[in-house]
Design a protein around this nucleic acid. Structure first.
Lengths: 245, 245
DNA sequence: TCTCCTTGTTATCAATGATTACGAGCTGTG
DNA sequence: CACAGCTCGTAATCATTGATAACAAGGAGA
């Protein structure tokens, strides 16, 4: 507790000669591009940030504190990247592109990603809740479009868990698990299950209506009409049948 | 390279006064029950194992080497537990119980699990391939039962990735992600997608055959026969139609 | 000007991973 | 039996690293 104030409010020259705190964060991020978080020494950070060792502890209290702050910044980038993805009129497709952008981020920043999603010790980055919130709104767009089978919270948690799993395996065992096929497979499975697979729904729907119409007509209990008639006429135009190979 | 031999072949008294190597491994596992792997000091291991510091380096060359060996032993336990699961006549249900046993293991041995599935640095435990192999045979049992839509390798990789993701999120963010619902949701999504959801397949299959028969009959291009006839008569016996609410 | 706060420097501590040197004790061979 | 060779244990030592303490420099505001 007790974050040091940044020299009053006169943080104008920041972009030119950034404050010590920012330089430390930046240096840590740069080192994270090549090394694992725990393999980075505080001295290396201080050298690169041109600050003395005590500065880290004055600013972040702890190495853990510094790493947690870096993880939060990582989440900020992560979420900013997701927010840049334009929303289309198909919320389910938007879920899929969000998944792909998640995977791309992980593969592009492996060490940062591990720091963000597998924190060590007690200090968890708080920004994960924000990620969850964004995912939740994306899922709720599906619900509002009538394309959700599950509770939105559960859907979001499921998607995020599976997404992280694909990334972690790709990072930990790249030789065995770094394949776009795996990502696509799991992605379509989870998203498909949660939102209801469009094509299958359509096939089930059409075929079911058709069958019901047939039964109704043959048994004389219900005449063919409405939706059943539409499907029936469409089926008649395509002699191969409503199902595709 | 160059694992030290264990004092000839006279490793009989092992259970009474175990060898140094075994004591070190055992001590590390015990400490892993409460601490993270990187938070364990080699001295603490040596104290508990009643060996001197050089013994670790003589046996494993490195702290990494020791941790990798422990991870491999962890995989051994992990796989032994899976092998104990009896196989039923439903290979898909077996996949689900394997998933659940995986999650249970992770929650029971959090630090060991993290060491196994998110190794740091270059040393990866080789036993992950064994885990993959076991999962592969389980998947192939599904294929042999005609219950697989995907290539077995891809199916196995997908299931394992998603399974690890659920566990890692539960361990890293227990407050937000340690819920059996999430595990079940992702499990059924991935396994269902890979093996084909039984009920949906049935519905699609029946309805499609029925529709094709109808079209064929009405257009005169193909008479109703064989499977279509069967489905048709069954449908006629259940006026509510083959689909359920 | 004087004082307070921030920042930078140096030195230092304790813990830790890793290694060397050396000796005790057992094993197998001549 | 004696000797060489190996495993194993002990102690001392190094370099690195996380973390602090002590103190000086320097600017902002009363």
């Amino acid at each position: 507790m007790g974050f040091a104030l940044v020299r009053g409010v006169s943080a104008d020259i920041v972009s030119v000669m950034s404050t010590a705190r920012e330089r430390i964060l930046e240096a840590t991020e740069e080192l994270l591009a090549t090394k694992d978080a725990l393999a980075i020494s505080t001295r290396a950070i201080c050298d690169r940030a041109k600050v003395g060792m005590p500065e880290i502890y004055r600013q972040f209290g702890d190495k853990q504190g510094l790493l947690t702050a870096v993880a939060d910044i990582g989440f900020e980038r992560f979420l900013a990247e997701k927010r840049r993805n334009p929303l289309t009129e198909d919320p389910v497709a938007d879920l899929r592109t969000a998944w792909d952008s998640h995977v791309a981020f992980a593969l592009r920043n492996p060490y940062l990603y591990r720091l963000m999603f597998t924190p060590t010790g007690e200090a968890k980055p708080g920004a994960i809740k924000e990620a969850q919130a964004i995912l939740l709104t994306a899922v709720e767009r599906c619900r509002d479009a009538g394309r959700l089978r599950t509770a939105p919270e559960l859907a979001g948690q499921s998607i995020l868990s599976a997404n992280v799993g694909v990334c972690m395996m790709a990072l930990s065992f790249p030789a065995l698990f770094e394949s776009p096929d795996i990502s696509r497979s799991v992605r379509d499975a989870v998203i498909g299950k949660v939102t209801g697979d469009e094509r299958e729904d359509a096939r089930i729907g059409e075929a079911t209506v058709l069958a019901q119409a047939l039964v109704g007509t043959l048994t004389g209990t219900a005449p063919v009409g409405g939706a059943a008639l539409e499907v029936l006429t469409r089926a008649l135009r395509t002699p191969a049948g409503p199902s595709e190979p």
